[in-house]
Amino acid sequence: MTSEHQSVSIICTVRDEADNIAALIDSMLAQTRAADEIVINDCQSVDETPAIVAAYAARYPQIKLVRGGHNISSGRNNAIRHARGPIIASTDAGLTLDPHWLARIVAPIEAGEADLVGGFFHPTPRSLFALALGETNYRRSSEIDPATFLPFGKSMAFRKEVWEAVGGFPEWASHCEDLLFDLAVERAGFRRVFTPEAVVHFAPRSTLRAFIRQYYFYARGDGRAGLWPKRHALRYAVYLALSGLLGIAISQPHLRALVGALVGLGVAAYTHAPYRRLWPKLRGRPFGERLAALVLVPLIRLAGDTAKMIGYPVGVCERRKRHASAK
Rank of each mutant, 00 (worst) to 15 (best):
I72S: 07
I72D: 04
I72Y: 04
S73W: 01
R76F: 13
R76K: 14
N77Y: 07
N77P: 03
N78D: 14
N78V: 12
I80E: 02
I80D: 01
I80V: 11
R81S: 11
H82A: 10
H82N: 04
R84K: 14
G85M: 06
P86V: 02
P86L: 02
I87C: 02
I87K: 08
I87M: 05
I87H: 08
I88S: 04
I88Y: 11
I88H: 00
A89G: 07
S90K: 11
T91L: 08
D92R: 05
D92I: 10
A93P: 07
A93S: 10
L95Q: 06
T96L: 05
D98G: 11
D98E: 10
P99Q: 15
I105Q: 04
I105Y: 08
V106Y: 14
V106F: 11
A107H: 15
A107R: 12
P108I: 00
P108Y: 10
I109W: 14
E113F: 13
E113L: 07
A114I: 05
A114P: 04
V117G: 03
V117E: 00
G118E: 00
G118D: 02
G118S: 02
G118H: 07
G119L: 03
G119H: 06
F120M: 02
F121V: 09
H122C: 09
P123Q: 07
P123V: 01
T124I: 11
R126F: 15
S127R: 07
F129C: 02
A130W: 12
A130Q: 03
A130V: 06
A130K: 08
L131S: 08
L131H: 11
L131A: 01
L133K: 07
L133A: 07
L133V: 03
G134N: 00
G134Q: 04
G134F: 12
E135Y: 15
T136Q: 00
N137K: 12
Y138C: 03
Y138K: 05
Y138R: 10
Y138A: 00
R139V: 11
S141I: 10
S142V: 12
S142C: 15
E143F: 12
E143R: 06
I144G: 11
I144A: 04
D145W: 12
D145A: 05
P146A: 06
A147G: 09
A147Q: 14
F149P: 08
L150C: 14
G153N: 04
S155P: 04
M156W: 09
F158M: 00
F158K: 08
F158R: 05
R159D: 01
K160H: 09
W163E: 00
V166A: 00
G167V: 13
G168P: 01
F169P: 02
P170S: 00
P170C: 04
E171Y: 04
E171D: 08
W172H: 02
W172E: 11
W172D: 15
A173P: 09
A173R: 02
A173H: 05
